[in-house]
């Protein structure tokens, strides 16, 4: 990236054509009124997120059909930079025709993706990603208003960054959805930590309850832990079952046999819905060893049964 960083002022070079088009001619910008809602026998919803002092603010208007929960009309207004306006425009469009619950599943990534000119090239540079996060938050706010519940019941809404009013869940979601690995990326995607910087790490001018460095570390640890947790064997595909079985052979079985001058090969695996039968062939010193049909075979089977009880082993 070094070469690409040497020419500055490239912010706008990295906006997609769709971003400029939506900024220049927003089609879903405007307000919706009670009268329009009445005409459509719908419910008018108005939701605000952000504030001018944060640099970004967006207001979302919906008319929702109370029978089907479908969003019949969707408009926005926005105080923010070009990408904030374009993201709000896209977000308002994506809401149309969806139910309120479906709309709450729209993420900042969906908004950003919808603004790409081609699937491979991001629509905005990384430091502008927070603009689409704002769009994602205002939908949640609108859904909360529609359901007559507090925003916090849709998610825990603990504010981590007061300046940009970024919540714990927004930060955690941004880390998970975008595979963020650094605090700088969190700032680029959510704007948390962009202003007074107190929430980045302890020692800033304000003492905080939560710090981005800790949230990042904990969230990454959670993700790693989830990845490590073995899935239930019976729900795996035959391919994944094979991989899991081979892992046991490589990790727990072969090293022991090899240390005695032998080895073992998996000849075949038969998958029945109720059981798995692994056919093995001994190699080297194991072939013809007295214990190969007794102790060693039992050892192999017990190791595989640690993976799942339904696995048994036979020699060929």
């Amino acid at each position: 990236m070094a070469k690409n960083d040497l020419v500055g002022g490239s912010l706008w070079d990295n906006y997609s054509d769709k971003v400029s088009e939506r900024m220049n001619n927003p089609k879903h910008m405007g307000e919706l009124s009670e009268a329009e809602a009445k005409e459509l026998s719908g419910k008018l919803i108005v939701a605000d997120f952000g504030a001018e002092s944060c640099g970004d603010a967006v207001r979302l208007y919906w008319i929702v059909d109370p029978k089907t929960d479908i969003i019949l009309k969707s408009k926005f207004k926005s105080f923010g930079c070009g990408t904030a306006i374009a993201s709000s425009e896209t977000m308002a469009e994506l809401c149309l025709g969806k139910t309120v619950d479906e709309a709450t599943k729209i993420t900042n990534i969906d908004v950003e993706f919808a603004m790409r000119d081609n699937p491979e090239t991001p629509a905005v540079p990384p430091q502008k990603m927070h603009c689409s996060v704002m769009a994602y938050d205002v939908i949640k706010q609108a859904a909360a208003n529609y359901k007559g519940v507090d925003f916090s019941t849709l998610e825990d809404h603990e504010i981590v960054c007061e300046c940009a009013r970024v919540s714990m869940s927004t930060i955690k979601d941004a880390i998970r959805i975008n595979n963020l690995t650094t605090v700088e990326e969190i700032t680029q995607y959510t704007k948390a930590g962009a202003f007074c910087k107190s929430c980045i790490k302890p020692g800033g001018h304000e003492k905080k309850e939560y710090y981005l460095v800790d949230i990042l570390r904990d969230t990454l640890a959670e993700i790693a832990k989830e990845k490590n947790q073995e899935q239930d064997y019976s729900t795996l595909s035959n391919f994944k079952k094979t991989v899991a079985i081979e892992k046991v052979f490589d990790g727990d079985i072969r090293p022991l046999l090899v240390s005695d001058g032998g080895n073992v090969e998996v000849e075949d695996i038969y998958f029945d819905p109720d059981y798995t039968l692994v056919s093995i062939r001994y190699k080297g010193a194991c072939a013809g060893c007295a214990s190969s049909t007794t102790g060693t075979l039992q050892f192999i089977q017990s190791k595989l049964q640690e993976l799942d009880e339904s696995i048994s082993v036979r020699m060929v």
Binding site: G8, L11, G55, D56, G80, C81, A84, T187, A194, F195
Partner: peptide, 8 residues
């Protein structure tokens, strides 16, 4: 403005 700069 903050939004115009590379580092916000």
């Amino acid at each position: 403005s903050a939004c115009s700069s590379e580092d916000l």
